[in-house]
């Protein structure tokens, strides 16, 4: 039931090496190299902050946390989710030339893309956390909980990637559809606005597992509450991940012979 995940684990060194290659490839030919991996998200945070605080004057502190800091932490989590999901669903399609010509354990490809996104995320996270420490003038042991939420995010992404990558490999239309869904999710996930604003729809919005991660990040940095304090939500999240894992394994086994032929 979990064959492909066992394969990923067995080949973790290869995944690591390949994701480093991806970073190298991503920034090959540029002079500044991986600095661009930092500049781009920071600029995006700055733009959203500008639009919401200067443009729409919606920059009220959220539950005691300054809006800019609250936004930045949420965005850091979102960038990981967004980039990794966007890349992993296309993992088979974008590595078509390798799949078609090299004997290679292709099941690990979504994991490579997720790890690649995770490594870029780590740099940004460290920079933002240092900035937070200065801005908030405080550091808490709860910040370590980010490690748990990163782990949870990786597992969620692995599940999502395993489910979507084989489908995207078969249907290009599905890939387009997912790109659209991601834009929709960005605005529907309470990243730019507090979840309480949803009012009666709050519980519906919370069904989105991405919110679990984004909220978790903010809980760790600002509100100092642990994931065990909302056990039902945690249980829901991990149940969902389990379902995605099982489905992902099934879809891969089922679709691989098909997409190898048609891609």
């Amino acid at each position: 039931m979990f064959n492909i995940y066992k394969e990923m684990w067995d080949r973790r060194k290869m995944i690591h090496a390949l994701s480093l290659q991806e970073i190298k490839k991503e920034y090959a030919g540029t002079v500044l190299g991986s600095v661009w991996g930092l500049v781009n998200p920071l600029m995006r945070i700055a733009v959203y902050w500008f639009v919401f605080s200067i443009g729409t004057r919606a920059d009220n502190p959220v539950g005691g946390a300054p809006y800019a800091a609250w936004l930045a932490i949420g965005m850091v989590a979102w960038f990981l989710l967004n980039d990794a999901f966007r890349l992993s669903q296309k993992a088979f399609r974008s590595k078509r030339s390798i799949i078609k010509n090299t004997p290679f354990p292709i099941a690990i490809l979504p994991a490579v893309q997720i790890t690649f996104s995770f490594y870029t995320h780590l740099i940004l996270l460290v920079v933002i956390l240092i900035a937070m420490a200065f801005a908030l003038q405080t550091v808490s042991v709860y910040w370590l909980q980010i490690l748990y939420y990163d782990f949870a995010a990786l597992m969620l992404l692995l599940g999502l990637g395993s489910v979507t990558a084989p489908l995207v490999a078969i249907s290009k239309d599905f890939g387009r559809f997912l790109d659209t869904v991601l834009i929709f999710l960005f605005w529907m996930t309470p990243i730019l606005w507090p979840v309480e604003n949803a009012g009666p729809l709050e519980n519906v919005v919370k069904l989105n597992p991405f919110h679990y991660i984004v909220q978790g990040y903010r809980d760790s940095i600002f509100y100092h509450s642990g994931f065990w304090e909302h056990p039902l939500y945690t249980l829901y999240f991990w149940a969902l991940v389990l379902v995605l894992f099982i489905l992902g394994n099934y879809l891969y086994k089922r679709m691989k012979p098909i997409f190898l032929d048609i891609m």
Binding site: Q21, K25, A28, S97, I98, N101, T102
Partner: peptide, 12 residues
């Protein structure tokens, strides 16, 4: 499998 082109990235 010896094929000359695959797995070679032109930017690297």
């Amino acid at each position: 499998f010896l094929d000359v082109s695959s797995g070679i990235d032109s930017e690297l």
